[in-house]
Design a protein around this nucleic acid. Structure first.
Lengths: 183, 183
DNA sequence: CCCGGATGAGACAAAAATGTCTCATCCGGG
DNA sequence: CCCGGATGAGACATTTTTGTCTCATCCGGG
């Protein structure tokens, strides 16, 4: 029976996000498998990290696809984006905090592509007049990563209810981005 | 001549934030000193991390003091908070991402105290009617950490101009928090 | 100029983590 | 029931990192 690699990677991401120096032994324990099996699935620590990056990027891209960022109003698209990203928040938090570890070209390219798509969404919102224009798309993209990461961490840590994850992020982000009457 | 311990710690925080697995050799190089000297200042990797935590917490507390969180409107206090926190943003980013490494009581207590003070600020804003009440103070505190971390990272990475750091964070955070007319 | 404290470079051993392998056991399908 | 693939436990060697020490050098003050 093939081991569920994705489940292992999820556990690894969760652990490594809050303790990046965890040993392969600890990762294996966190995933509920032995070090031997972990090593059979991923040939070494590097390979594990790479797989983590690859799966994270892939899932993020899928989330962007599913969110249909260029349909409806930009605000609605942002809502969909957060909703789609929620299940992948653990991976995103890992990618954001650890992405300097291995600067492979493939990694960098995938990350740039995602950045661009999200930036484009914010730019669309600005051009349509929905969003204020004094905050750069690049910053808003970065801020979104930060908020999603914080949200994932707060939920995992029990400081915030999981069901509020989406609401809190969307409200804070959109409320800040949206051009409002009061200054 | 005594080595500038704080300068070393700043360099260490900057490096460890984006590469938590860096060896003491790499940390020393990043700080521009030899491993021997690094070890003379901080007896081992653990001691270095502890010092990093201690100094970070202390500087954060100082920033909170300087920001006079309970004066003026809550919005103004938030502005001052971000302004005071900016020079310490590197430490904050490190603390937020790596704080699960060593769960010493002292560490946890210091962190809790800071959480409480910032939460209290947001609560004050809600009770005075300045801030919307459907986002919990705990979440807003967490979000502030995330935004400051993202901001510090974006600046360090050149994606955002250093002079915009404060403006962008304050605007996004306050704009989102502030009770606005347009829903 | 000379001295003393501090540093950098590097050797070295100890400790920790990793990669590799063996073997007993488990578990599901035939 | 029996078999084969997969797993867990653990031994072992290798590599990496850390901690410790020595020594030459630098540099500023007296």
């Amino acid at each position: 029976m093939a081991v569920d690699r994705e489940r292992i990677l999820r556990a690894a991401a969760a652990l490594l996000t809050r303790k990046a120096t965890a040993t392969t032994d600890e990762v294996a324990k966190a995933a509920g498998i032995s070090r031997a099996t972990l090593h059979r699935q991923f040939a070494g620590r590097d390979a594990l990290i790479r797989a983590l990056e690859a799966l994270g990027l892939q899932q993020l891209e899928s989330a962007l696809d599913a969110a249909r960022l260029d349909e409806d109003s930009a605000s609605e698209a942002v809502r969909r984006l957060i909703a789609e990203v929620e299940p992948v928040a653990g991976f995103l938090a890992f990618l954001v905090t650890e992405n300097q570890l291995f600067e492979t070209d493939a990694m960098n390219e995938g990350w740039t592509r995602i950045d661009d798509r999200i930036s484009a969404l914010f730019r669309r919102g600005q051009e349509s007049g929905e969003f204020r224009i004094d905050l750069s798309p690049a910053w808003l993209t970065e801020a979104l990563y930060g908020l999603v990461g914080s949200g994932a961490w707060a939920v995992q840590d029990g400081r915030v209810a999981a069901k509020d994850f989406q609401f809190m992020i969307v409200e804070l982000l959109l409320g800040g981005v949206r051009r409002s009457v009061g200054k």
